[in-house]
Design a binder for these strands. Structure first.
Lengths: 329, 329
DNA sequence: ATGCAATGTGTAATCGATTACATGTCGAAG
DNA sequence: CTTCGACATGTAATCGATTACACATTGCAT
């Protein structure tokens, strides 16, 4: 592999000059600069990033920590992040926590040791150890999806999104609305969305039968299982609508309902959140909420870049959402 | 940030000893080792990977080059790769070519300069410049999806998959089978799949009307547009079945057909390739071919790891596939 | 008692870049 | 004719690790 020293030798200058030519720092005569660039072209020389990074303390790499690599949400966000960062010459170092809280922490430290310039964290939970680790590593971190105290966060308005969906169902005449949520360890999806639902139900004076409530784990299968349980446990007082906090769980629920011969939305209406690709093309198409994940990723990247330039940024940004009304209600 | 020197000082030994203790190389007395580990724990010290990588010429990072970040296929493959690599302590450096051939080449060189230990390339095309660059950088590279001369490749059996699908349609009584392909720059998807289709049609003695043939660009929209054109151009001699080389294009085609009031599969049968999530849940569910992408990713990672250990591996591996018969035929 | 292998630790070179500082040239201002 | 600033280049330290080599101690076989 050719190094800066090789280039220097070939061009009959010191490596200092080569470095200057390459980085446009300091003075280099046009003549010499051309000679150097010429040789760089010919040899296909590329600076060794490890050496560069060791010396400059910056790597041109941004770490991204995902809860799951294989969900549409993650993919879209990463896509948005990459679109912005690639243009600025940054690469993405990807890690997947598999929803494991310890890994979340381990990866932050690992990324630090890899000298990433910043970290974007798709957070699924909030806990003291996590906050502390972030404080410790002292790298710009940006959280998406949860509000982390002390960390600039980009959050979806889960409460109002859930409230809007619930209101919409009520407006359509539903009074008995079932709900499939997730663990309360997840403040955004697990707590806020349920809160929005419960508050609106109460506001409209509709009693919630606790048999209508299920807790899934984000998967399609869990949606299928939960609706099954809900229907079994509420024979005489069946809900006429079902609110699943993610599209995937809504899809599982619909799968079961169709199997059992229920007509959607006539017998039972279903809504989800996430605006997955499938929600558009399935039958019936799914009413859902679009969180503009890709935009979120782009915005996150921009905010991180601003942090890297030492700009002060607000501690919290709220993202917009859009209700997509389709055939499932 | 604490460095190995700080640790050495605190433990009253030389940094050499610390290095040895950390890497289990050479001799270190139990006593000293414990003392060092103790301090490492307390301080939360992590070795600077840039320094390490500069010295050792290995980084613990594998570069992954994708044609598109936001497709199910890519995601699944990356997921498989990550599952294997993470266990071995490797991280993934992600890049997205956006189907740009030049970027494919640029990224290979960029990844080299970033000292990645190996590269997994989801290839979409084959050309001389690409091969040459790979040869030049002299890093273990593994290709998925295309057979690259001189590069160990993991390929799907596109020809037989397409042939099987075609045969299946013929067995169901179809003689007029339309086809939506992609650019022939893509040897696997663009050439082999079409070849499988054409050969089987010929073998069964079914003439192909060139008005039945369309070329899309992998997108849902292009499936929609292509089938529209095909139907317009073959008024009097309409196909009774349609073979789209990707699920997404099949989905677009079905969308249009449903809009126009065609019954699927009664009026026209549709098949795709890819076993996308949607193919299972859409109505009608889509007959397709499962390429086991995640397995491919896992296998690719394993093969790359073997290359890193300097094992000789075969130049070509063929992956298995499975035809999934569903309601769209 | 001697020698040699195994064990334990340190010194200093090295990886490939950046950068503070020094040095030298040249033209213009005073 | 000095002096000073802009321009151009080089010397050498530095970033934080690994590792070849050297040296010291110990124990055991001869």
């Amino acid at each position: 592999m050719t190094t800066i020293n090789d280039i220097a030798q070939m061009a009959n200058v010191s490596r200092t000059t080569v470095s200057r030519a390459l980085n446009n720092s300091g003075y280099v005569s046009e003549d010499v600069r051309r000679r150097i660039m010429q040789i760089v072209e010919e040899t296909g020389y590329m600076p060794n990033q490890s050496a560069k990074s060791l010396r400059t303390k910056r790597s041109g790499v941004i770490g991204v920590i995902l809860p799951r690599l294989s969900t549409e949400t993650s993919t879209r966000v990463v896509n948005g992040i990459n679109e912005v960062l690639a243009k600025e010459g940054f690469q993405i170092l990807l890690t997947d926590t598999e929803l494991d809280k310890q890994k979340e922490i381990d990866y932050i430290r690992l990324l630090k040791s890899r000298h990433v310039d910043g970290i974007i964290l798709l957070a699924t939970n909030v806990n003291e150890a996590l906050i502390q680790t972030i404080q410790q590593v002292d790298i710009p971190v940006l959280a998406i999806g949860q509000e982390l105290p002390g960390v600039p966060s980009l959050v979806y308005d889960d409460y109002h999104a859930a409230a809007d969906l619930t209101n919409m169902l009520v407006r359509k005449g539903h009074e008995k609305i079932g709900f499939i949520g997730v663990t309360r360890d997840d403040p955004s999806v697990g707590v806020l969305r349920e809160q929005g639902y419960r508050d609106m139900m109460q506001q409209h004076g509709h009693q919630i039968n606790e048999a209508w409530i299920g807790e899934g784990d984000f998967s399609i299968e869990s949606g299928y299982e939960q609706v099954k349980t809900i229907l079994r446990n509420s024979k005489s007082d069946r809900p006429t609508a079902l609110f699943a906090v993610t599209d995937r769980m809504a899809i599982g629920a619909i799968e079961y309902l169709k199997e059992q011969g229920y007509a959607i939305p006539e017998d039972i209406a279903v809504v989800g959140i996430g605006a997955s690709m499938m929600s558009k093309y399935m039958t019936p198409s799914l009413t859902t909420i679009d969180y503009h994940n890709k935009e979120a990723g782009k915005q996150a990247a921009h905010l991180l870049l601003r942090q890297l330039k030492n700009e002060k940024i607000d501690p919290k940004f709220e993202l917009s959402y859009r209700l997509i009304l389709r055939d499932s209600v």
